[in-house]
Amino acid sequence: MRTRSLAFTLLTLAATLAAGCSESPDDGNTGGAAGSGGLPSASGSGGGGASGSGGSITGGTSAASGGTGSASGSGSTTAGTGGGGEGGTGGSGGTGGTPNPGSGLGSGIMEGSGSSSERYETALVSRNDTPYVLITNGWGPGFDSHSISWEGTSFTVQSMSGTAGSMGQPASYPTVFCGRYSVMEVPECGLPAPVTSITSLRTGWRWAKNGNDAGEYNAAYDIWMGNGRQLRGYLMVWLRDPPSYQPAGQPNPAHQGVTVTNVPGTWNIWNGTVNGLPIVNWVRAEGNDSSEIEFDVMDFVRDAETRGLSVPGDQVNAVAVGFEIWEGPITNLQSLDFYVDVN
């Protein structure tokens, strides 16, 4: 039985805590509470995401059914809307803009390496001289332990143990992000930026299961919309939908099996609110994981508007990726490459 979390209700609480943890709003209802400017997840405790029993928490918005998670993190990120889906190299940018030819997947020069078993570790990293922030983000009440290593925007969950919270919150949401997210650090990566100033907002992510084929985790983008400082809503893109957990909100019957202009694959849309803030999730069908994608974030913004699912806010605050993990053990789960290219 798939569950849905109330985690999103805690996102706003976590956002006021900005201590260094992140939560996410959308997956499996595990949305997380934002740290400094992020949404707290409803069920997340700490900087985790706010996933309920089926939501994800990756340092972004939390899931709608999540509970009132504790505020132990210093912020939270929202977890994603990713679901399974066929991999792809992503479509070309939405309304134009020339992608940086050196920004594509596989071309990154990574700097900033380390490893940690700390529940809430924050590390400054870079890819092709563009700064990002990594957060280990073991925010959920069911978190037990983890060991995470990183180099630039790539990271490996070497080991993780824990269980979903009573309200379906993920145990952790290790994340890398560009912009103003769930912790105090704000890398000078080009975000936040006004929507009207963005010609294209290209991003790409490649990750690998490495044997974690049936694990209870998602792989999700967590995109925060707002006014540059305050969070106003969430967009999540789930590249993997786990067996037992689902995004915040409800499946939108009018928008199932849809395509997004310039973006590869098909998506099931879930939408609702988290802590009073709107969230829209584009989710790959379960069993159709996408291990690689490149796209223009603005194509998802426009897709939401076209479908009447607009999220308030005139700026893109942050773009994050990571794994909302509800249950361990997980070993050697990898984020291989991630970039954001603001034009």
Rank of each mutant, 00 (worst) to 15 (best):
116 S>G: 06
82 G>E: 10
111 E>W: 04
72 S>T: 07
85 G>L: 10
106 G>D: 01
92 S>H: 11
69 G>L: 04
85 G>K: 05
95 T>K: 10
91 G>E: 00
64 A>R: 09
103 S>C: 09
99 P>G: 06
79 A>D: 10
97 G>K: 03
97 G>A: 09
114 G>V: 07
103 S>I: 07
95 T>A: 14
87 G>E: 05
102 G>S: 09
83 G>T: 02
87 G>W: 09
89 T>P: 01
115 S>Q: 11
67 G>M: 02
68 T>R: 13
79 A>W: 04
73 G>M: 03
120 Y>V: 02
74 S>K: 03
111 E>A: 06
66 G>T: 02
78 T>G: 14
74 S>G: 14
106 G>L: 09
100 N>G: 01
121 E>Q: 07
111 E>I: 07
70 S>F: 13
116 S>H: 00
92 S>Q: 11
113 S>W: 11
101 P>W: 09
69 G>C: 09
66 G>I: 05
102 G>K: 03
103 S>M: 12
67 G>T: 06
107 S>D: 12
111 E>G: 10
109 I>E: 11
87 G>F: 07
102 G>L: 15
101 P>A: 14
94 G>E: 15
71 A>S: 09
64 A>S: 14
63 A>C: 06
69 G>A: 12
68 T>N: 11
112 G>S: 04
112 G>E: 03
114 G>E: 15
85 G>D: 07
65 S>K: 04
105 L>G: 03
112 G>P: 01
73 G>Q: 01
112 G>D: 08
92 S>A: 12
88 G>W: 07
88 G>N: 08
82 G>T: 05
64 A>G: 03
94 G>V: 12
92 S>L: 12
97 G>D: 05
97 G>S: 04
104 G>F: 14
97 G>R: 09
84 G>Y: 13
66 G>Y: 10
96 G>E: 06
66 G>S: 05
74 S>Q: 09
81 T>Q: 15
82 G>F: 13
99 P>A: 14
107 S>V: 03
67 G>K: 04
97 G>M: 13
108 G>D: 08
87 G>C: 02
111 E>L: 05
76 S>V: 06
64 A>Q: 14
81 T>P: 02
71 A>N: 10
92 S>I: 01
104 G>L: 08
82 G>M: 10
65 S>H: 10
